[in-house]
Design a protein around this nucleic acid. Structure first.
Lengths: 202, 202
DNA sequence: GTCTATAACCTGATAGAC
DNA sequence: GTCTATCAGGTTATAGAC
């Protein structure tokens, strides 16, 4: 059945999915109980199993969704043949930070669940997509000596790592929620400069 | 009782601790069963409870140990008043990568467990140590406009992020175990150059 | 479709023999 | 100190009423 587009109330199925998104990404698969999810949704366990068969099946749906978002968001920019390398760096930085500010728990969730369960991830062809991208071709032209992987790992590290270590900042009293958001907004300006500076070295 | 320094066989207590280190860091607290730990140690559950009282108490011991290593390793370099900023960057990069190559699962373990359980972490005064360090004073002199936090987040991101995303590289077929180690060895040379290039921008 | 009650299983922890 | 057997509690999943 196609999803209704009218303004009618959200279905139980959708409520459970939304709750699962929230709880799974916050606590991870192993630490979440089906009870946590249905309580968050204001429903009961029977409904979860009625719609999704099992905790594991529900998790797969959420996990695939999150991996798609996490890895998919920069693909259009990587393949854009009309933009310069510098422009791509700016777009990726801005777009990624914006998306992660909406989903701050996503990186640590996706990365730690892939550690626990590489099976699900293999469906996504990250390696091939990257290697065949216009972005990597441009990188090789600009810096023939350096593996693009090194550059990409650095760029993504600068963007994503603050989200992964956000709980550390908060617990250590270095940053609160608002301070973190401000910092990431500043980084949208700062990182492209730093990333381009890396390209200037030999 | 002081730990024996002779070459006698490893005690059951030490065997369980070693097994716990391995299993907890690989799977995280929630996903490990006490049975996993004692099987790894070749012993039985009763021993675990005899020596450590509970799964949680054993976990706390391992977790404190790992946090100490993860956050503590760079402190001596941060406070060294005899070295230049450039030298510190080289030392931190080299030393951190070496340690993480020995403990590749450590970053994702420590960071995801802090997310789940900030209580344990609060005992370590990361924020104060950082702010009062010679390293941060040197940074402020060199780049008065930029928050040291931005710089540190970038530097640590470039160093640590590859370890956090290692399962992605492996599952995606981009790198195998040996390729990853090679890449990190290359990064010991590459990162100091890139990090210093960031300092040169305004 | 939704709910309550319960089954079936798993996991951490302990009792008690050696 | 070490082990086997077992308990107590919690968790997922389902049966069956509405």
């Amino acid at each position: 059945m196609a999803k209704s587009t009218s303004k009618e109330a959200i279905s139980a199925e959708e409520k459970i999915k939304a709750a699962a998104r929230k709880v799974f990404t916050q606590k991870g698969y192993a630490a979440t109980r089906t009870r946590d999810i249905v309580e968050e949704a204001g429903l009961n366990i029977a409904l979860l199993n009625y719609y999704f068969r099992s905790k594991e099946k529900l998790f797969e749906i959420i996990m695939l969704e999150k991996m798609q978002e996490f890895f998919g968001i920069i693909i259009p920019f990587l393949h854009d043949e009309t933009t310069t390398l510098d422009k791509k760096i700016e777009q990726i930085t801005n777009r990624y930070i914006d998306m992660l500010l909406q989903n701050p728990d996503m990186p640590i969730f996706v990365l730690s669940e892939i550690r626990n369960n590489n099976g699900l991830f293999k469906k996504i062809q990250v390696g091939k997509i990257l290697q065949s991208s216009h972005f990597v071709r441009q990188l090789k032209e600009k810096q023939p000596g350096v593996q693009p992987l090194h550059f990409i790992a650095s760029m993504l590290g600068m963007i994503i790592f603050p989200f992964v270590s956000k709980p550390v900042f908060k617990s250590a009293g270095v940053l609160n929620e608002h301070g973190f958001a401000t910092m990431m907004e500043e980084r949208k300006k700062l990182l492209p400069k730093w990333i381009k500076a890396m390209l200037g070295t030999k």
